[in-house]
Design a protein around this nucleic acid. Sequence first.
DNA 1: TCTCCATGAGTTTTT
DNA 2: CTCATGGAGA
Length: 715
Amino acid sequence: MSDLLNGLNEAQRLAAETTEGPVMVMAGAGSGKTRVLTYRIAHLINDLGVMPYNILAVTFTNKAANEMKERISKLVDADIQRMWVATFHSICCRILRRDISHLEGFKSSFTILDEEDSVKEIKETIKEMGLSTDEYKPKNVKCEISSFKNDMKSKFDDTTTEQIYFAYERRLKEENLLDFDDLILKTIELFEAFPDVLHKYQDIFTYLMIDEFQDTNTYQYKLVKMLGEKTRNIFIVGDQDQSIYSFRGARIENINKFQRDFKDTKVIMLEQNYRSTQNILDIANRVIDNNGSRFKKNLFTDSKDGIKPIFNKLNNAYGEACYVSDEIKRLMEMGYSYKDFAVIYRSNYISRNFEDVLLRQGIPYTIYGGLSFFARKEVKDILAYIRLIIDYDDSFSFKRIVNEPKRKIGPALIKRLEDCARENNCSLFKAIDLIDRGGQGYNSLLDFKFTIIELEEYLSSEEHKMNEIVDFIINRTGYKAMLKAEGDEGEERLKNVEELTTVLIETDEMYEGTRKEKLMQMLQEIALRTDADTKREGDDVVKLMTYHQAKGLEYKVVFLVAFEEGVFPSSMASFSERDIEEERRICYVGITRARERLYITCASERMVFGRTNSMFESRFLKEIGKESLEDKTVIPKKVFAQSNTKKPFVPGKASDVVETKRTNTTDISIGDKVNHKAFGDGTVVAVNGDVITVAFGEAFGVKKLLANHPSIRRL
DNA sequence: TCTCCATGAGTTTTT
DNA sequence: CTCATGGAGA
């Protein structure tokens, strides 16, 4: 046996070497579980001669999958391209592409709907049924259906919603579409209806490995069980304390269920942490200890105590962002680089102040979340063009772009087409030839048809390079002209469209076959690509992200911001102990992202819904214990002590008004001359609480600033 | 059919 | 506050 596994500690090594039978690894944060997984796979291939394609490794994100593949490829000589390392959704997608045609009425060329698309389909379904979209809000219905499909609900609340569900399912089938949830469900359906197909995959995947097992839902677990039942070589890795996806149907209980279903499961604990300092681990342990229903486990480390985590409470959200930005600058001078920092928050809207301030301070950053590249309207439009060009019968794509740019082909005409298509059991594209001639927009429709045919000829002829395709499409269809006419915003969107060219060039190199075949493969996989997968890790920039996005990542310096009741724990989760326990796990995940320095900040007041609210410190601060934090707050301590003893924020309470006034003290008044580090000298033109408005003259104009911000002094 | 304005609704987390 | 949607008018 090689010395491949020498770099592992005893528990890790045991986990990597126990290759046969069911194994469960309880891996605390930072205990090297990814390391164990990669070395285990390398061990299977290198030392035991297992073929890479007999290994199935399920990760939580595509990004994690790619990273793992890369790390494995450095450890083994064998070609691992054919090894299955992917998310549940990607794996199911691949299985369905091969075998879904066994199921009556399904075709392997299905298109995967993203969130937006499926809400759109539901909306049309509701309208078609003659129901009101006010009463049955498409978003809510989608949520209901998704809950049902993820076993979070065993039946629908009312029969109408159930009817919508049935109609939606029928509609998807007719249009050859699957939503995200279907990827898992249809695979199970396929395996149940066709045991032969299941056996085929059972024979292929002789070693199963599931990462982040605590976040699997009922059906994902079922899938694991089905696939692994035969060989029973199932290796699951998880941490009950990091289960943060119950809103999506994840079940921590699957950990226990696994042990019941596979009685001879070997359990291995990884408790040594290699990431954080003792001080950071201490507060992580203290917080999570408040969760009653947990199997006790304590992380320890050999590393030093390190720097005491820092707490700071600022007057408002703007001040909080300024503090974080100042600390980043200060630490940069001590030798850190931008990529060492992460700002982590509970929900996306919190990021705004940080974006503003970082931008103004010239600190480079990227935001995770928001609209992903492939979810952008313009990108989806062009992809829809390509889809339609390759497959005229793709009516879903047809509808998306038939009037984009505007061609005077409105809802009335579409309705005519749809009716005709249904009557003749054909696609919308074919229906163009069958509807009655004439009428509003009929000629535009013919034009559109010829444009698509022309584009198809262009695309088929292999003489044109892949990188010319997008350009040709946007020129020929008038899409480019449309964007050009939109001004600055259009310019931005044009850039996104042009970025697609890069994707096509990648496509050209990545896949085999004719141009069309390559494009088809790209289109089939694109729905599962998320922004995080595309983001370049290596960039030397500060990262802004949610706790959920931060899972599995680590940074030298971590700022956990907006530690306020109602934000974190989220106001949506303050009702049951169950919810609070999940918020606490989120907190635990956040703390354990930090390697060297941890900052926790909050603000006394914050704008929510355009209103300024007084905020109260998160209960998690108390659980962490203020004594284990170095308090940098500059507001008088007694103000704090009071706010600590008060009940959480309730809108309209008199005491809150008093609280707000107290923090509004500033000794700067209208007419004062002030100096700002970056903007130079200016005159105060307005004072509103602790926010002052200063006119700085032509170069910088009028700015709203925090009066007691360190970068401002009165002259 | 398109454009513009008003109104209202909503920010928890995502494959 | 900000975005999306829908209605009215051109």
